[in-house]
Amino acid sequence: MTFHSHDDTFAGLPVTEFPGGTATGPTAWRVSFEDEDVSQASLSEGFRDVFETFLTAHGATTESLVIGPWGYAAFAYAPLEQLIAAAPRLPRLRSLFLGDITFDECEISWMKVGDVSPLITAFPQLETLQVRGGEDFSFSPVASDGLRRLVVQSGGLPAGFTAAVLGSAFPGLTDLELWLGTPDYSGDTRVADLRPLLDGTLFPQLCRLGLRNAEIADELAAAVAHAPVVARLESLDLSMGVLSDRGATALLAGQPLTHLRELHLQHHYMSDETAAAVVAALPETRVDVSEPQGEDDDDRYVAVSE
């Protein structure tokens, strides 16, 4: 699986294309420009011009913004500097998604992004940051009192990226979603790197946690089974990875999960019997065990890698 289409909604709002789209109410504007010159290594002048036009038309009122292709993302780095420079012209921005790019526009593993953490500093009112990337995708420790939701989508999340997120000060964070991916695409984050998070010593308001798209899904499930942070979660998401009977059995054998409102395990390698046992063990929880992938030990893949 990879990204076949753009998101229709973001931050609870319908997405409207710019240019070309017409908003009839509150909307998340999506700004993009596909450059025919795929060899261009600098920010596309076409994107620069489109974004400038957008700022003039809607910058003062925009609360939610989606950035799609900024040229050909395999060669041109994300427009981080342009976004940061535009902060005074986006005074109401609360939600930002950088990298709403489908596989035919650029594979996720090829996307050159850079260090996305300065976006949080540039937009102190930002409540939601969602970022997607692969090559040269990084984060630095940062502080924000306002950030509530952080989503990092990758086919392989480096341990350094994970450490920087966990080294950040986000006292109001309620939702954290990390796509860990596979070592084939630099995803070397291990369970040990996540211990400060699993121990419950970080992000005191956290109530929704996603450790998704993980080749180490079984190890994560075994760790989560005894992780103190789980006791205060409403939603736990281990979907899109290679969770098997081994991980699911460890999860059920650990601490009670009956307090969870949601448990997401879709795209998995559990047997039908084990998947049914998970659902039966949590009758008051919305458990998603859809998208079974089979049980072949030698043919297991995360949902998004390349």
Rank of each mutant, 00 (worst) to 15 (best):
S64I: 09
L83Q: 08
A122P: 14
Q266K: 15
Q293K: 08
I67M: 03
A143H: 12
E234S: 12
S5W: 07
S239K: 09
P141D: 03
G12D: 02
D8C: 00
M111D: 02
E105Y: 00
L176M: 03
D199F: 10
A231V: 14
E291S: 12
E273W: 06
A164W: 06
F161P: 07
T121D: 14
V278I: 15
L202M: 05
V15K: 06
Y77E: 15
V279H: 04
A223I: 04
D237I: 01
D35R: 01
R132T: 15
L166R: 06
E177D: 13
L263W: 07
D136H: 15
L178N: 12
S154G: 07
E306G: 15
A231D: 14
E306P: 15
T102H: 00
P14C: 03
A223D: 07
D296S: 12
Q125F: 12
L55T: 04
R190C: 02
I108C: 03
G241T: 05
H226T: 15
Q266V: 03
D35F: 03
L90I: 10
D37A: 11
V66P: 09
P283H: 08
E105P: 06
S271L: 08
L150Y: 03
A225D: 03
A250Q: 13
V229C: 09
L129S: 12
L238Q: 01
